[in-house]
Nucleic acid binder design. Structure first.
Lengths: 221, 221
DNA sequence: ATTTTAAGTTAGGTATGGCTAAATTAATAC
DNA sequence: GTATTAATTTAGCCATACCTAACTTAAAAT
C-alpha cells in the first residue's frame, strides 16, 4: 500500500477525527466542522473525498471513522505536532502557550529527516509540554498510568499534574501563574460548589470546575 | 503601509524576481517561468495580481521590477530561507545539499518569533552554508568583499572559497568530495580548454568551466 | 522591408477547498 | 403518529493558482 500524498487540509481532517475519536465514541460532521472551523457542507465534501481515498469510513448520519491507513497518517501528523511542540519549548525557548500555533503550521511541511533529527536530539521523548503522549516512529503510543481529571480527585490526596487538556493561551497563562504546570505536585483540599480547592507550593487556590476538568493528574505513592 | 498577507506562491514570485534581479538587469516572464517551474501564462496572471497589489511593476515586454514593498517582502523571505538553511546545517546536522528543499518549505510558515529565535541562537549570522548573504532583521545585506568566479581567477593565486552559486545536490556532493567547500583555500594552477586546474590540500583537480563559474572566491592576503 | 522566431498575452479550462441557501433525513417531543 | 428541531447533504458559487491552445507583439535575420 503506497502512502498517498495529502493536502494540509486533508491531514488536518484526519488528525481531528483521530483526536475527537479519543474523546467521543462517534465523530459527527458537526464536531469536525467546529474543530476545523469550516461549515458543515465543506466537511461533507471533504469526507466524501477522504472516503474515496479509503482514509475514512462514513455511515451517513452515524459518524466518521478512520481506516487503518487514515489512522496511520493521523498519528504521523500528531507525532509531528507534538515533537515540534516539545522542540520549540526545549530548544527555541517557546513558552507552552506559544507552541501550538507554530507547530500547527510546521507539522505539515517538515520532512522525515527533520522529524528524525529533532526526535533524536531530544532522545525520543514520550510526552510533549502539555503532557500529551508522543507516538513513536512506529506510531505506537507510550503506555501511560491512569490519569484522573482534577474534578474527580479525592480530598486529601497528593497528586502530580501530568497533562493539561487545552491549547487556550489564556488558560495556559493562568495555569502558569498558579504553578499548575506539568510535573508539579498538588494537594486536594476539597470540592466546593464553585470549584476544587487545592494547595500548590505554599499557596491555596479555588480552581473553577471548567478549568479543573482540563487538568489531569496521577496519584503520588 | 500595512503588510499584505501573501500566499506562498506570491512569496515565491517575489523572492525569485529579487534573485533574478541580482544577476540580470531585467527579469523576463520567461526567466520567472523557468525558475518557478510554471508556464508563461501563469506568470502573466500572477504578475498582473502582484501589480495590482503594488508589489511589482511591469512594463509589458520590458520586464518586471519589485516595488519597495515588494522588495522588502522578498528580502524577508530570503532571510527566512537562509537563516533556516544555516540552522538546519548547524543544529540539525543537515549537509549542505539537504538544506535547500527543507528551507524552501519552511520559509513560508515560520513566525517572526521562530525567525528571531534561530537568529539569536546562531548569534545573528551573516552568511548561510552556501556563502549566500543573510539580510539582517532590518533587511540590510552584510557588506561583503569583492568575489570573483573561479573562471576568472588568475594563475598562481591562493584564494578562499566564499560562495557556491548552486543548490544542485549532485554538484554540491561533488564539491564536498573535492573539498571545494566554503572557507577552504585553493591555489589556481592554470586555465585549460577543459577547465580550471587547481590545488586543494594536496590534491590537484581540473574543474570544468560549468562548475568553476559557480564557485566564487576571495583573494587571500 | 519582409519574414521568421521568440516572448508575452488572452481565452477558456481544471482541481482544490472553501462558502450560502435550500432540501432532506433522522431524532425528539408531544 | 405527527410535528418540531437538529444534523446532514445537495446544488450551485467563489477564489486561487495552475494548465493548454491560440493569438499578438516585438526582435532578429536575411
Amino acid at each position: 500500500m503506497e502512502k498517498p500524498v495529502l493536502s494540509e487540509s486533508q491531514e488536518d481532517y484526519l488528525k481531528e477525527i483521530f483526536k475527537l475519536r479519543e474523546m467521543n465514541v462517534t465523530v459527527s460532521m458537526q464536531d469536525l466542522a467546529k474543530k476545523l472551523d469550516v461549515r458543515p457542507p465543506s466537511v461533507t465534501g471533504m469526507i466524501k473525498k477522504l472516503c474515496s481515498m479509503d482514509l475514512v469510513e462514513h455511515e451517513p448520519y452515524k459518524g466518521v471513522q478512520l481506516t487503518e491507513t487514515g489512522e496511520k497518517i493521523a498519528i504521523e501528523v500528531l507525532r509531528h505536532h507534538r515533537l515540534l511542540e516539545l522542540y520549540l519549548a526545549k530548544h527555541l525557548n517557546y513558552s507552552w502557550d506559544e507552541i501550538h500555533d507554530e507547530a500547527e503550521r510546521l507539522e505539515h511541511v517538515i520532512s522525515e529527516k527533520f522529524e528524525a533529527a529533532i526526535a533524536e536530539l531530544m532522545d525520543h521523548p514520550t510526552h510533549d509540554p502539555h503532557g500529551d503522549p508522543i507516538p513513536s516512529v512506529e506510531l505506537e503510543f507510550p503506555d501511560s498510568p491512569d490519569l484522573t481529571p482534577l474534578t474527580t480527585c479525592k480530598t486529601g490526596r497528593m497528586m502530580t499534574i501530568k497533562r493539561v487538556m487545552t491549547q487556550d493561551k489564556d488558560i495556559l497563562n493562568l495555569l502558569t501563574r498558579l504553578e499548575l504546570t506539568i510535573g508539579n505536585i498538588i494537594t486536594i483540599k476539597g470540592t466546593e460548589s464553585a470549584g476544587i480547592r487545592l494547595k500548590v507550593s505554599d499557596n491555596q487556590y479555588l480552581i473553577p470546575h471548567t478549568i479543573a476538568k482540563l487538568i489531569w493528574c496521577h496519584e503520588d505513592n
